[in-house]
Amino acid sequence: MSAHHHHHELTGDGLVHAARAALEVAGEQWTDMRGDVYDALATEGKPASAYDIAEAVSKLRGKRVAANSVYRILDLFVRTNLARRVESANAYIANPHPGCRHDCIFLICEVCGKAVHIDDDKLTGALVEAAKAAGFADVRPVVELRGMCSDCTAGAE
C-alpha cells in the first residue's frame, strides 16, 4: 500500500459532474434540491454546517429551506462519498474527488476555519489495523488536526 494517495482535485463544473455521476452510480437520483445543496457545499470553501447550507439554498431558491432537509441530503452525500463530515466542527465539506473511497486526514485552521485534506493510506491503514487488533470491525478513521494555515500564519507575522 502506498503511503500517499494522490488525486487530481476537481473543481467547478467538473466536480459537479463527477458528484452527479457518483451519486447515480450509487443508485440515487440527482434532484434539483440535491444539486442546489451540493453547489452550496462545493462553493463554500470551508466546512459548512447544515444551517449555513440551508441559508445559502434558501437565498438561491427564494424560499426557506429547512435545515432538516439539508441534513438528510448531507447524510446521503456522506454515505455516497460526495462529502465528508468534519466531526469536530459538526460541518461538511465537498469531497474533491467523489467516488474515490479512502480515509482523509483533515487539517483545520483555528483562525479562518479553512479545511485541507491530505491522504496518507499508510497512516489511516495503521489506525484501522490497530482497531482490528483491539477487536473492532468496520472501522472508519476520523483524523482531524487543528492549527494555523499558511495564510493565517503569514498574516500573524
Score class of each variant (00 low, 15 high):
residue 59 K to A: 15
residue 50 A to D: 11
residue 57 V to M: 07
residue 66 A to K: 14
residue 48 A to W: 08
residue 99 G to H: 00
residue 116 V to A: 10
residue 41 L to I: 07
residue 152 C to R: 06
residue 7 H to T: 05
residue 43 T to R: 13
residue 127 L to A: 08
residue 131 A to N: 05
residue 21 A to F: 00
residue 103 D to G: 03
residue 121 D to V: 10
residue 5 H to V: 05
residue 87 E to S: 13
residue 81 N to Q: 13
residue 65 V to T: 13
residue 2 S to N: 10
residue 10 L to R: 03
residue 42 A to I: 04
residue 94 A to W: 04
residue 2 S to Q: 09
residue 60 L to T: 15
residue 156 A to V: 07
residue 110 E to G: 10
residue 60 L to G: 11
residue 73 I to Q: 12
residue 36 D to F: 02
residue 145 L to Y: 10
residue 21 A to P: 00
residue 100 C to A: 15
residue 40 A to R: 02
residue 109 C to S: 05
residue 93 I to M: 13
residue 69 S to K: 12
residue 97 H to R: 14
residue 59 K to G: 11
residue 148 M to E: 14
residue 10 L to Y: 01
residue 110 E to Q: 14
residue 83 A to P: 07
residue 79 R to K: 15
residue 111 V to Q: 14
residue 137 A to H: 08
residue 133 A to M: 06
residue 148 M to F: 11
residue 32 D to S: 12
residue 74 L to W: 04
residue 142 V to I: 12
residue 54 A to H: 06
residue 66 A to E: 15
residue 59 K to H: 13
residue 62 G to N: 08
residue 103 D to Y: 12
residue 43 T to K: 13
residue 156 A to D: 09
residue 49 S to A: 09
residue 71 Y to V: 12
residue 109 C to Q: 01
residue 139 V to G: 04
residue 156 A to G: 09
residue 12 G to C: 03
residue 10 L to I: 02
residue 70 V to H: 03
residue 56 A to S: 15
residue 11 T to I: 05
residue 78 V to R: 09
residue 10 L to C: 03
residue 78 V to D: 03
residue 29 Q to A: 13
residue 108 I to M: 07
residue 74 L to K: 09
residue 31 T to K: 00
residue 133 A to P: 00
residue 10 L to D: 06
residue 97 H to Q: 12
residue 31 T to G: 04
residue 45 G to C: 05
residue 19 A to H: 01
residue 114 K to D: 03
residue 157 E to G: 15
residue 125 G to N: 04
residue 100 C to D: 15
residue 57 V to T: 07
residue 23 L to H: 01
residue 14 G to N: 08
residue 91 A to L: 04
residue 42 A to D: 07
residue 94 A to N: 05
residue 40 A to M: 01
residue 60 L to M: 14
residue 80 T to W: 04
residue 15 L to I: 00
residue 152 C to Y: 00
residue 141 P to V: 01
residue 54 A to V: 03
residue 80 T to K: 06
residue 93 I to N: 00
residue 152 C to F: 07
residue 8 H to D: 02
residue 143 V to N: 02
residue 13 D to V: 07
residue 45 G to A: 06
residue 145 L to T: 06
residue 141 P to K: 03
residue 110 E to S: 14
residue 33 M to T: 11
residue 85 R to E: 15
residue 147 G to S: 03
residue 33 M to L: 15
residue 80 T to N: 08
residue 93 I to A: 10
residue 124 T to Y: 04
residue 150 S to M: 11
residue 133 A to L: 10
residue 58 S to C: 08
residue 156 A to S: 13
residue 124 T to I: 02
residue 11 T to F: 04
residue 61 R to E: 02
residue 44 E to L: 10
residue 157 E to T: 13
residue 130 A to S: 08
residue 147 G to W: 03
residue 155 G to D: 11
residue 2 S to C: 01
residue 67 A to I: 07
residue 88 S to E: 13
residue 63 K to V: 09
residue 144 E to S: 01
residue 18 A to N: 00
residue 71 Y to W: 14
residue 53 I to M: 06
residue 54 A to P: 05
residue 131 A to P: 03
residue 150 S to N: 12
residue 13 D to F: 07
residue 79 R to L: 12
residue 46 K to N: 06
residue 44 E to T: 15
residue 59 K to P: 06
